[in-house]
């Protein structure tokens, strides 16, 4: 059974169709790269998967639970980093992570250890006592990632996790996400295409709410590359989303 299963998912805002009959599934332990130009419907799809927005039509299932019918079961299994990291600027990093761990019902005894584990993974150990509003953009983004990892949820939905990071930090986060494969099922949206080639086996490209490509990266290269041997994902992306 796939970990994430999306069938005929549609989201309409009045007249405008943001997501149009999306179908895809992600197997357990897989990392799916989720691509598309700005405004293609990536964030909307992710918001529906996490139960923040209801779909207009179609269904989405996480670990066999429908996101609309059994939202609590789904939310218990998802770590979510929204487009804008959901941070309280007045809180310290330690206070914030403790609060999120409590929200996710991490048991009281393991709470400190869990916060320490996650802050170690994301390289936050040195800034734990600092107030979030004084952190650099890169650190804020990392706090956002740390928050998603708390409680070690089986599914991670990361909306542009490397946004605002410098190249070195980006490489770190990439390494971190690669390390999650196998244990976690990950959906990763990003604008930085080489990132996808490095971290994901499979990609889903959407444009104007519709799927334009959904396959393994190698196969995509074969199909759309034509005669050229080493066609990059970037070229495929531009070709597919130009229409």
């Amino acid at each position: 059974m796939p970990m994430i299963e999306v069938q005929n998912l549609t989201k309409r805002y009045r007249e405008r169709v943001a997501v149009d009959a999306l179908n895809f599934s992600v197997a357990e332990g897989e990392i799916l790269g989720f691509l598309g130009p700005n405004g293609a419907g990536k964030s909307t799809t992710m918001k529906i998967l996490t139960g923040f927005l209801p779909p207009s039509e179609g269904t989405a299932k996480v670990a066999g639970f429908d996101v609309f019918e059994q939202p609590l079961e789904v939310k218990r299994r998802i770590g979510y980093l929204p487009e804008t990291p959901p941070l309280y600027p007045e809180m310290t990093v330690a206070g914030y992570l403790k609060f999120v761990a409590e929200l996710k019902r991490v048991p009281g005894r393991g709470l400190r250890a869990e916060v320490e584990r996650v802050s170690g993974l994301t390289g936050l150990a040195d800034v734990m006592g600092r107030v979030i509003q004084n952190l650099s953009k890169g650190y804020k983004q990392r706090v956002g990632i740390a928050q998603a990892l708390l409680g070690s949820p089986p599914v991670l939905i990361l909306d542009e996790p490397t946004e605002g990071l410098d190249p070195a930090q980006r490489a770190e986060v990439r390494g971190l996400i690669k390390g999650l494969a196998g244990k976690h099922t990950v959906i990763l949206s990003t604008h930085i295409l080489p990132e996808v080639t490095m971290t994901c086996e499979k990609v889903l490209i959407i444009n104007q709410g519709r799927v334009v490509a959904y396959d393994q990266i190698r196969k995509l290269a074969k199909v759309h590359g034509g005669k050229a041997e080493n066609v990059s994902l970037e070229e495929i992306f531009i070709k597919l989303t130009a229409a």
């Binding site: 929204p82 999120v100 929200l103 996710k104 019902r105």
Partner: peptide, 9 residues
Amino acid sequence: TFELLMTAP
């Protein structure tokens, strides 16, 4: 941050 509250269990 409302998204955090609404997507937490």
